[in-house]
Computed example of a mutant assay.
Amino acid sequence: MTTIQDAAVSRRRAKPRPGKIRPGKIRPAKTPPTKRVGRTVIQAFLLIVGLVWLTPAAGLFLSSLRTEEANASSGWWQALTAPGQLSFDNYTALLKDSGITQAFWNTVLISVPTTIAVVVIAALAGYAFAWLEFPGRDWIFLLVVAMLVVPVQIGLLPVAKLFGALGLFGSIPGVVLFHTAYGLPFAIFLLRNYFAEIPKEMLEAARMDGGGEWRIFSQLVLPLGRPAIASLAIFQFLWVWNDMLVALLFADNASQPLTVALQSQMRQFGSNIGVLAPGAFLSLIVPLIVFFAFQRHFVQGVMAGSVK
């Protein structure tokens, strides 16, 4: 009798309970061969595209490490087989050039305040246009959107005359003010549309809990809008950092950014690769660092409107 009971208990213990899966029995589904081949082809294609995209930057970097004589006699790819010709002498000489270093810091003083001003003003205006009721809101927003179709070249001459009368022409604040004014229409349009997608129930619940507009904006809207704000900041920084047209007109020799300084070097010394290559790579590496630093937020901002 005891043996039968023991055998029954053993069978119950050995039998898996319904709804539970015994560990060690789960086997991952095998990927079909066609999918594996397709995934490999896609990855190889993306790798080739990435290499092609990075080739000019790699060539510029290698050229900046070679002497002017080596660049004049052979292509930059020769450095791959003769790495002994590479050195940082060009960068040492570049950093000792007071004009280039001053132009680099001028670029920072133009790009960073402009980006901050555009993001802050656009975030405030975007929230107002999306969730605050005031007379003429829709018409004002349509006017802001209409400013997107105005080319920047149209405003150069009248704004230059205005800045001359105000004493801002030929100064860093003048360049910052111009970039801020022409960057706001797109920034407001982008953030307003993003903030408008926030569920209305969340804002109403925050108001019922006693939250004011500033608290709702700073503690609810801004955290939810971080991907769009990060994307806007990246775009705005890249536009201003790489700009030469506005700075060429509104900045003087003391306030010119790096793009204008390199253009001036090219005009004075012709194809001076020893100065232009390291200067161009220095101008390139900063936007790349900014982009990769905020890459995660940028991807979230791009994908935010594609998935509900």
Rank of each mutant, 00 (worst) to 15 (best):
D6T: 11
A7H: 07
A8W: 03
R11F: 12
R11N: 12
R12M: 12
P16M: 02
P16G: 03
R17I: 02
K20Q: 15
I21Q: 11
K25E: 14
K25L: 15
R27P: 11
A29H: 13
P32E: 09
P32S: 06
K35C: 06
T40C: 13
T40W: 13
V41F: 13
I42C: 06
Q43R: 15
L47W: 15
V49R: 04
V49W: 09
G50E: 03
L51Q: 11
L51M: 13
P56K: 05
P56H: 04
A57S: 15
L60F: 11
L60T: 08
F61N: 10
L62K: 13
S64G: 12
L65V: 00
A70T: 02
A72W: 12
S74R: 15
A79H: 06
T81L: 14
F88M: 01
D89G: 13
D89T: 12
T92S: 08
A93N: 14
L95T: 04
L95M: 09
D97S: 12
D97V: 06
I100M: 09
I100F: 15
T101C: 08
A103K: 00
N106W: 04
V108M: 07
S111K: 07
P113M: 07
V119D: 09
V120P: 01
V120D: 00
L124R: 04
L124I: 10
E133Y: 04
F134Q: 10
F134N: 13
D138S: 12
F141G: 05
V144R: 05
V144L: 08
V144Q: 01
V145W: 00
V145F: 09
A146G: 09
A146P: 03
L148W: 12
V152I: 14
V152S: 09
L157P: 14
P158E: 01
K161E: 13
A165C: 04
L166W: 14
G167A: 03
G170Q: 05
G170I: 01
S171W: 01
G174S: 00
L177G: 13
G183I: 04
G183K: 04
L184Y: 11
P185F: 03
A187W: 08
A187H: 04
L190M: 09
L191V: 10
R192G: 03
Y194P: 00
Y194E: 06
I198F: 00
A206M: 01
R207I: 07
R207K: 06
G212V: 02
G212P: 02
F217E: 00
F217R: 01
S218F: 15
S218T: 15
Q219S: 14
L220K: 03
L224A: 07
A230P: 11
S231L: 03
S231E: 01
A233C: 08
F235M: 09
F235D: 10
F235K: 03
W239M: 11
V240H: 01
V240P: 06
V240I: 01
V240W: 00
V240G: 02
N242I: 05
L248S: 10
S255Q: 04
Q256H: 10
Q256V: 11
P257R: 08
L262P: 10
Q263G: 14
M266R: 05
N272G: 07
I273L: 13
G274E: 11
I289Y: 13
I289S: 12
V290S: 03
F291G: 05
F292G: 00
F292H: 00
F294W: 08
Q295S: 14
F298P: 07
F298W: 01
V299N: 08
M303F: 14
A304L: 15
G305H: 07
S306N: 05
V307H: 05
